[in-house]
Design a protein around this nucleic acid. Structure first.
Lengths: 231, 231
DNA sequence: CCAAAAGTGTTCACGGTACACCCATGC
DNA sequence: GCATGGGTGTACCGTGAACACTTTTGG
C-alpha cells in the first residue's frame, strides 16, 4: 500500500497512451487491448497507463508497452499531449500519446500479462475506442503517413532483411496509393541507403527476390551533411 | 487560501511554456521574461506557468500568454512535452511546450503585469535560459523553420497588409538563406493565395510597393481539395 | 537628376513520371 | 511448360534555378 500524497493545489493525473503500428501481408495494423475495468470496461483501447513520479515520460511509455504487449525494442516517438477537461469521466487526466513501430515478423507480440485481451486490428477497420483514443489513433496515422515520406521510419515496420517488393508494398499500404515498380526501385536504390545482401528469400513458388538491409550508419552520416530522405 | 489535495500516489506538477516568435526589421525574435523567484532568479526564461485542474492545456497556454505578455489573438500550436526527471530542481514538473506566432506590428506586446521584466531577443542571440528552456526554444525554432515551408504560418508574423518584399525578408530570415526576387514572387503569386489590394505602402523615400493580404478563406477551400502549400 | 527599391521573362537542367517485356524458379 | 513474381531502361514533360534591366517615386 502506498501512503497518501498531498499538494496545495489539485493536480491532474498523468498517463501515456501508445499507438503501436505493425505491418504484415494483411496490411497496416494497430495493437489494441480490451479494457476489463470501468470506465469503458469491455471496450478496446490503446495500451497505456500512469506515469510514475520517478520515471520520465518516455520511460513510462516503454514500460507500459512492455508490460502490456511484451514488445521491447521498438521505434518510439512522442505524438501529442491530450488535455481536454472531459477526456476521462473520472477525473482530470492528461495523457501524453506516443506512436510506436514494431517489426511484427521479428518480435512475437504476446498478449497482455494482466489478463486483458490484446489484438491487432487493421487500421481501416478499427472498432470504436475508449476515451478519446479514436482521435489519438487518427492523429498517429496522419503522422505516420506524413513522416514516412521524409524520414526512413518505414524500415522499422519491416524485418531486418526485406525484399524491394516488401518495401514497396509497405509504402503502398501506408500512403494508400499504387506505386510504379521501376520508378520506386530506381529512387530507393538511388539513395544508396540499402545494402544488397548475398541472400534471397526462401520457400517461394517462383523466382526468389534479393534481400536488402537498411544502412542506418550510412543514413546518419549522410544526414549530418544535409542529406534529406525522401520517397 | 486553497485547501490541500491528497492522492494515493505522488503526482507531477503540470506546466505550460510558450516560445513566442515575432518578426520585425531587426529579424526573428523570441519573447523572454526575467525570473524574479528561485530557482533561476534573475535568469531569462520562457513565459509559462501551472496548468489549473479546471482548464485545458491549450487554455492554460493562452491564459499564461495573456497574463505575462498581454498578447491575445495569436497563432498557438502545441510543440512537445518535456518530462525528464531533473528538469526542475524543486520537484517533478512536466511541461507542455507551445510555440506562438504574433504580429509585432499590430499588437503592442506589453511588459508583464507581475513586475517581471519582459523583452524580445534576436533568435540567434538568446541568453542562457532557465531549466531546459534552451532546448525548448531550439526545438521551437526547428519546427518553425520546417513548418513555414509547407504551411502558410509565416503570415502570422506579418501585419495583415504586407508587401512582397516583407514576405520575402521573412522567409529569408526564417530559412536563413537568400532568395531570388523574381522566382519568389512567381511562386508566391502563382499559388493564388494573395489578394492584391488597391493600396501601397506609405512614407517611403522611393517607389511605394503594392500591399497584399493572405486569403485565408481561399486557402481553406483549396486545402480541402488536396492542395498543399509549399515555398 | 540621383538614390532606392519595385517590378518583370526567358532559358536551361534536372528530376519525376509514364510505360512493357524478358527472366528465373518451382511445381 | 506454365504460372508467378523478379528484374530492368528510355523518352518526355514540367518544375525549379539562374540571371539583368527598366520603372517609379521622393528628396
Amino acid at each position: 500500500m502506498s501512503k497518501a500524497h498531498t499538494y496545495a493545489y489539485p493536480r491532474a493525473a498523468l498517463t501515456v497512451d501508445c499507438v503501436v503500428f505493425g505491418f504484415d501481408t494483411a496490411g497496416l495494423r494497430v495493437l489494441l487491448i480490451q479494457r476489463d475495468a470501468e470506465p469503458f470496461a469491455g471496450t478496446w483501447a490503446l495500451p497505456g497507463g500512469f506515469v510514475r513520479v520517478d520515471e520520465s515520460i518516455d520511460d513510462a511509455a516503454l514500460r507500459e508497452l512492455e508490460e502490456e504487449t511484451g514488445v521491447k525494442r521498438v521505434y518510439l516517438e512522442q505524438l501529442y499531449t491530450f488535455g481536454a477537461l472531459d477526456r476521462d469521466p473520472r477525473e482530470r487526466v492528461v495523457s501524453v500519446a506516443y506512436f510506436a513501430l514494431v517489426k511484427l515478423s521479428d518480435h512475437q507480440v504476446r498478449a497482455a500479462t494482466d489478463a486483458r485481451d490484446a489484438a491487432w486490428f487493421n487500421v481501416d477497420e478499427l472498432p470504436t475506442l475508449a476515451f478519446d483514443h479514436d482521435r489519438i489513433a487518427e492523429l498517429a496515422l496522419e503522422r505516420l503517413r506524413a513522416k514516412v515520406r521524409y524520414r526512413p521510419i518505414g524500415f522499422e515496420l519491416l524485418p531486418t532483411k526485406f525484399t524491394l517488393t516488401d518495401l514497396q508494398k509497405l509504402y503502398e499500404v501506408v500512403l494508400g496509393a499504387e506505386l510504379d515498380k521501376r520508378n520506386f526501385r530506381k529512387r530507393v536504390l538511388g539513395m544508396g541507403l540499402l545494402q544488397e545482401l548475398d541472400e534471397v528469400e526462401q520457400d517461394v513458388a517462383h523466382r526468389a527476390a534479393r534481400l536488402y538491409r537498411f544502412d542506418q550508419a550510412k543514413y546518419r552520416k549522410l544526414s549530418r551533411d544535409g542529406f534529406e530522405f525522401s520517397l
